[in-house]
Design a protein around this nucleic acid. Structure first.
Length: 321
DNA sequence: ACCTGTCAAGTCTGG
DNA sequence: CCAGACTTGACAGGT
């Protein structure tokens, strides 16, 4: 089995390369000249895109093939103060450059819209904003010139005290979306509400690939023991996608805070999982969600390569024999 | 240079 | 019905 690793949004190795610089609404309002304030936002967005490209070059140099973009590339884009603002024409060259680089080097990229994107919501205003948020994320991928192998990963959302009602509401709201948007969505089990099995059932019903988060599963297990049978069902949701299944990995922050994310990733639980699935899964992509970002990725790979059944293929790819 | 509080968002809890 | 907690990286304002 071939396993590749990636990381999220920012680098601990490249200095001053934040792709998530922002401006508060308060300081936006403090600027007397609104046009100048908007131009400042646009400058920040261009800087975020430039830093994203710097990170991709870093990824290329270190053979990191998976990367998740920051969802905060354009500051205040969803804020009501900026209603009517359309920075996309200005940012198009920046997005295109990123997409060209991704395609040139065969990278797998994604977004993870914030947890305020909630398709299970009963509130019309929240649903509208969620649709807008998803549309905006897909729009960015479109401007990059990327196809629907670049995914937007989301959670099912809130339960509102009644999961049995929230799930069909999610499904109905999901189905109202354009096919182009739907084709970009993946669903991930969360750490509090919707378990692996519940998320999987929705994925199977909707024909949406599922991203398994093994840390979330550990803290929100529900009824579904993570055995080979469950994994095979999850892996099947990726059939026909031209993509290897993807999982998320992180480790508990502490004994007391099991849900928080630690700086680095423990290799033992991951190895146990990989060895369980290696016979049935030829390729797997693993997103590292640790505070130390790319630094934790390299530390993890360094630990893994010492295992007898692990062979290092490149700086971030292993073969588990 | 560093520290502390605030900001965005939506859900959930406790009162 | 409403205030506060939760989460995250980064701003904003203070020393």
């Amino acid at each position: 089995m071939i396993v590749r690793f990636g990381y999220v949004a920012m680098s601990m190795m490249v200095q001053n390369a934040s792709p998530s610089k922002t401006m508060t609404a308060t300081s936006f309002l403090k600027l007397a000249d609104r046009e100048a304030a908007v131009r400042k936002l646009e400058r920040i967005a261009e800087e975020n895109l430039a830093n994203t490209l710097r990170l991709l070059r870093h990824n290329r140099a270190y053979e990191v093939h998976l990367y998740r973009f920051s969802s905060k590339l354009i500051p205040l884009i969803s804020h009501e103060l900026l209603e009517g603002w359309n920075p996309f024409p200005l940012l198009e060259p920046g997005f295109r450059e990123i997409g060209d680089y991704v395609k040139e080097h065969g990278m797998r990229v994604s977004f993870h819209p914030d947890h305020f994107t909630v398709l299970s919501t009963p509130r019309e205003d929240v649903l509208r904003k969620s649709y807008e948020d998803l549309e905006r994320h897909v729009q960015m991928l479109d401007l990059m010139g990327l196809d629907d192998t670049a995914k937007c990963n989301i959670h099912i959302g809130g339960a509102y005290g009644n999961k049995e009602a929230a799930i069909p509401r999610f499904i109905a709201n999901f189905n109202k979306m354009d096919a182009h948007i739907k084709a970009h969505i993946t669903l991930e089990n969360d750490d509090k509400t919707f378990t692996t099995i519940e998320t999987l059932e929705v994925c199977e019903q909707l024909g949406v690939p599922m991203v398994l988060d093994i840390h979330h599963h550990q803290v929100n297990t529900g009824d579904g023991e993570l055995d080979l049978q469950l994994w095979e069902r999850i892996a099947r949701t990726w059939e026909g996608q031209h993509l290897a299944p993807k999982i998320h990995v992180s480790s508990p922050k502490s004994e007391k805070d099991q849900r928080g994310h630690a700086d680095y990733v423990e290799e033992v639980p991951l190895l146990r999982f990989l060895r369980m699935i290696r016979e049935v899964t030829p390729e797997l992509d693993v997103m590292i969600e640790a505070k130390m970002k790319d630094a934790s990725l390299f530390r993890l790979v360094d630990k893994l390569k010492r295992q007898e059944d692990v062979k290092l293929m490149d700086q971030t790819t292993i073969e588990l024999k």
